[in-house]
Design a binder for these strands. Structure first.
Lengths: 258, 258
DNA sequence: TCAAAATCAATCAAAAACATTCAGAAGAAG
DNA sequence: CTTCTTCTGAATGTTTTTGATTGATTTTGA
């Protein structure tokens, strides 16, 4: 039986039963226990199923949310990998601030840690967090059209009520001198404050943002860990790694499956 | 039997019976007493149930709260008409509080007034308001799974920063003596506060809510204008109109389609 | 109020499930 | 045909889950 056929069979059995024991899968496919385990790990990484002790279950999102959200926005592979890396920093019991935006949204499905709390100012983050059944708090404020971020006095007041272990921030510009920046000063203010309230900060930015200095500065490069991918401009990237703490999603990760 | 399946079974038994003895769960699952105890502590941590001496009971809030998804379907004609009526009270320049829930959501497409501001604690309301390009503010707070309403201290703090011209509130129970009520005390608190901060209040409730007194009281019948449809129970309806200010969507409206 | 009965939390050893490693098999590339 | 890579299954030691036992706590009923 081909590897790919096995994947199909596993997923099909799951569709039918919602939960499946490892032993059942071994019997159904004729493969060994080790192989099935490997398959499950891979399929879980691709968000096709959720592993549970003793077997696997359908993704929660598929159980109670019929695929609407799913195709609403497909993340690029790049974003997924950045998200996965970001999620790997989350530990059990953490209180997280997750900034509005799609980059940050992409990390949520990959968060494995238990007992975490998410605070956010993003409509999309709320939805994603709900789908994955995280304990979620939202800051108040004006709902900005376009980005659907909550900003303004209400947001500021809310964030000041919290302290975070880790803040995950999106950005529009990464410049060696000007640091992280974003076009809207109001949004910049929120990001700044969230980082200030957080013990540790992470900025997610793909290489298309490199070298851009947009209107409102958010923070210096030293103030956060930058999660990104390598990109084309090796020269800029060199300079970057000298100044900022950079977490690179390397090409191996990028080209592995899916 | 898999751990996950056991959880499902426990929750399902609870759905059926509202309270369950430990011994029953042991028998139903075939697991040991210790294991069931452990399961219960875990499920309680996840807010799925409440432990009681000798067993477990449903969370109060879940007692009769239909999940968001079930309600989410297309608006009924009834709801649309109630929404249209509610919207007719909105005037140019109003500051509105619009409560979480589908009844209130249904009014948004019908709002004609210009320069209005919407404040809400409902995820669905934000989305609908954005679609119709209204100036929207959101209160902070804990995101309640199920209804997707924002509640708790954050929400209270936020609402206290505002004054509204009109508040539109949803409810689960309309009882002659007990007034308006809803199953979750935390949600009731928010509704109460919003009404207090508002010059005028409207409650939207279809006749299926008539005669129900759920766990937490929101307000007396006199404190708001009730927007509803006639329904079957003429007798109850008579009594209602004696006590409350009622706006009835009459049958003509109902049958003249949107 | 008190003591017996029931229920509970905490602990521990056995069992089940797990990740990891390694050597061999199957395929692909040269 | 050989070499290299990828995939597989068995063996290893580790982690998680489980059920029994203990003593503490709560409820019951007199």
């Amino acid at each position: 039986m081909l590897t790919f056929e096995r994947y199909e069979k596993i997923l099909q059995l799951l569709e039918d039963q919602k939960v499946t024991k490892l032993a059942d899968l071994v019997e159904a496919t004729g493969a060994s226990e080790s192989t099935i385990r490997r398959d499950l790990t891979i399929l879980e990484n691709e968000q096709k199923l959720k592993r549970i002790h003793g077997g696997a279950s359908l993704m929660k999102s598929k159980v109670d949310e019929p695929s609407m959200m799913e195709k609403q926005q497909q993340f690029t592979e790049e974003k997924k990998q950045m998200g996965k890396r970001a999620a790997s920093f989350v530990q059990d019991g953490d209180c997280l601030y997750i900034d509005a935006g799609t980059s940050t949204q992409a990390m949520i499905p990959y968060i494995q840690a238990k007992d975490i709390v998410i605070v956010t100012n993003g409509l999309n983050i709320i939805q994603e967090a709900l789908q994955h059944q995280f304990r979620t708090y939202v800051v108040g404020g004006y709902v900005k059209s376009g980005t659907h971020a909550f900003i303004g006095k209400g947001a500021v007041d809310s964030i000041q009520q919290f302290r975070f272990d880790k803040a995950f921030i999106g950005t529009n510009g990464v410049d060696i001198n000007f640091g992280f920046s974003t076009p809207d000063p109001e949004e910049a203010q929120i990001k700044q404050l969230a980082m200030k309230q957080s013990t540790q900060s992470f900025v997610l930015a793909d290489p298309s943002k490199f070298g851009d200095a947009t209107f409102a500065r958010v923070a210096d490069l030293e103030e956060a860990v930058l999660i990104t991918t390598e990109g084309d401009d090796r020269e800029f990237f060199e300079k970057l790694t000298n100044v900022a703490k950079v977490e690179v999603v390397n090409s191996d990760d990028l080209h592995s499956h899916s």
